[in-house]
Simulated assay, not measured.
Amino acid sequence: MVQSINTKVDLVIDATSHIRASDYGQIMIGDKGFEFFNKRDKRKFIQIPWEEVDSVIASVLFKGKWIPRYAIKTKRNGTYTFSSKDPKKVLRAMREYIDPNDMVRSLGFFDVIKRGFKRKFQK
């Protein structure tokens, strides 16, 4: 059994981790960090302390009506991507522990295309 890093839990919600193949489990947000526990294999878990979080990147579609997934960018270990049943509730719970300026929107499809064209013609 995995020991949780949190002493107080704010939110527990069903979620999917998109790190390797899709892993189904639960997200736990508490006072010490962000945790993901796999439902089937207890050895597959992700624990990210709040001090390690660099930024949270949300993919926002339809002017904020739908958030299909969000990513947590850490200072040392890269980016972890998740989706959950109620992503707005998860992001609001994370906002208590992370600076709201570190929570950003990801680039849209046309923004990525526009950036590519700009870089192509600047050279």
Rank of each mutant, 00 (worst) to 15 (best):
E35V: 04
I72D: 06
L91F: 02
F37G: 11
K32W: 01
V90P: 01
K42R: 09
K65T: 12
R43K: 12
A58T: 14
K75F: 06
K75E: 05
I46N: 02
E51I: 05
P68E: 11
K63C: 11
K32T: 03
K85A: 11
K88Y: 08
V53Q: 04
R40H: 12
F36H: 01
V60E: 09
V56H: 04
N38K: 05
E35A: 03
I48Q: 05
G33H: 06
S84A: 12
P49W: 06
D41S: 10
T74H: 08
F45H: 09
K32M: 03
P87T: 10
K63N: 12
W66M: 05
I46V: 13
R43H: 11
F37W: 05
S59L: 13
Q47F: 00
K75C: 01
D86C: 07
K85Q: 09
F82W: 07
F62G: 05
F45P: 00
F62S: 14
K89S: 12
L91E: 10
A93H: 01
I72P: 07
K73W: 05
I46Q: 03
S83K: 04
I72L: 05
R69C: 13
Y80V: 07
V53M: 08
K73A: 12
F82P: 09
N38W: 02
E51T: 13
T81S: 12
F62R: 12
K65V: 13
D86W: 02
D41Y: 06
K85I: 13
K32N: 07
S55E: 09
T74D: 08
K63Y: 14
N77M: 09
Y70D: 08
I57Q: 13
F45M: 04
L61V: 15
S83T: 10
S83C: 03
F82V: 09
T81D: 12
W66P: 00
G64L: 07
G78T: 11
L61R: 07
T79S: 12
V90S: 06
S55Q: 14
A71G: 10
S55N: 11
A58S: 14
A93F: 00
K88D: 09
K73Y: 05
F62L: 15
V60N: 07
P49D: 03
R69T: 15
